[in-house]
Structures are given as C-alpha cells and as structure tokens.
C-alpha cells in the first residue's frame, strides 16, 4: 500500500506523533496538540449539548408541553455560577441534578452492591469438585476479610483476637490490586497499539 495522500490522515498522523512526544520530553508540538485537544473537546461538548437541548427539551416545547420552559430557565441558571452577586442561583439546577443523580443510583445500589453480593457470598462452600470448593473458600475468606478491613468504627476489629481478619483482608486486597495493575498495563499497550497500527497502516501503508 502506498503512503496515504489523504490530508485527514496526515493531520491525524502529525497529532499522533505530537501527542506521543511528551512521553520523551515536553515540547512545543505537544503543547500545540494539547491546546488543540482542549479546544476541540470543549467545542464538541457545546455542539452535543445544543443538540441534546434541541432534541430532548425544545422538541417537547414544540409539542406544546410548556412546562419544559422551566427546565430551560433552570439551564440558564447554571451559568450564574460565574456571577459574583447572583452565583447562588446556580444552586437550584445543581440541586435538581444532585437529587436526581443520587436518587437514581442509590435505589439500585442497595440491590446490586449489597443484597446481590451478600446472596452470592452466603452460599454453600462445597462445589462440584474439590477445586471449586477450594475456590469458594478463598472467595469467602476474601469477602469477609476485605470487608473487615474497612470497619473502623469498632476498635477491636484491628487488634486483639480479631486483628488477623483485617490483616488478611489487606493481603487479599493487595493481591487483587496487583491483578488490577497487571490489567492496566494491558489496557495502555492495547490502546497505543491502535495508534501504531494507524501510523503504519493508514498513514505509511507499510502493513496490511
């Protein structure tokens, strides 16, 4: 494949190299790409915001649902955040967003993060095979001890006869965080590989 003649690809290749260059040393090309990115991201947010306001707000007003004017007023009130005197007006829409966000997530968190997890743990430890039983025991110990590590309101939890529990919990958490770190390495290499493919395939045409 020949080198790309598409200006889009050339611009994208330039920015890919410029954005990578920071890993080696701070430089003017990186600064240029950084500012391009921030400006583009903010511009994109505005475009998507206006589209959403049109599709999910204005569309209702067009259907005669005049109550939607209220949300437009609340939306404008958000921008009073930057006003010295009337900044407090932005608290009304923020209060709405916080109330909605909190209500919508805690109602289900009780079920998903608490009840379902306890049900899953409070199962017989014996499995179909000896290895399954062994795994169930490890999981059970992991859950109980990791949870005990976060109990700070009862002093006896971290010393005396129960002191071993949070200690084992700490070890289990560290082992799990190690797995998380191992996967993070894969995430980043997997992502950069995409840029390498772009440079070698789409731009330079070296690989198929």
């Amino acid at each position: 494949m020949p080198v790309s003649s598409d200006p889009l690809i050339w611009i994208a290749a330039f920015y890919t190299i410029a954005a990578t260059s920071y890993a080696f040393r701070d430089n003017i090309l990186f600064k240029f790409s950084e500012n391009t990115y921030i400006g583009a991201a903010a511009g994109h947010a505005i475009v998507m915001g206006i589209k959403n306001i049109r599709d999910y707000g204005w569309a209702h007003i067009m259907k005669g649902e005049m109550i939607y004017w209220v949300v437009f007023v609340l939306g404008v009130m958000l921008y009073f955040r930057f006003h010295r005197q009337y900044y407090w007006l932005y608290r009304y829409p923020i209060a709405f967003l916080v109330g909605n966000g909190v209500g919508i997530s805690i109602r289900a968190a009780i079920h998903s993060d608490f009840i379902k997890q306890i049900i899953e743990t409070a199962k017989p430890l014996t499995g179909a095979t000896a290895f399954d039983t062994f795994n169930n025991i490890i999981i059970f110990i992991g859950v109980i001890t990791a949870l005990s590590h976060f109990i700070f309101t009862y002093e006896g939890m971290h010393k005396g006869t129960l002191g071993w529990m949070p200690k084992v919990g700490r070890w289990m958490i560290l082992l799990a965080l190690g797995a998380s770190f191992g996967n993070t390495i894969m995430t980043r290499f997997g992502q950069y590989q995409g840029r390498i493919l772009f440079l070698l395939r789409d731009w330079l045409g070296i690989v198929a």
Binding site: N52, I53, Y56, G57, Y68, V70, F72, G75, P93, N100
Partner: peptide, 10 residues
Amino acid sequence: NWGVVLNAFA
C-alpha cells in the same frame, strides 16, 4: 427528561 436537558446545558 429534565435531567437529560439540564445535563446538556451543563
């Protein structure tokens, strides 16, 4: 619906 519109304003 209002939540979506307000988030869009934000």
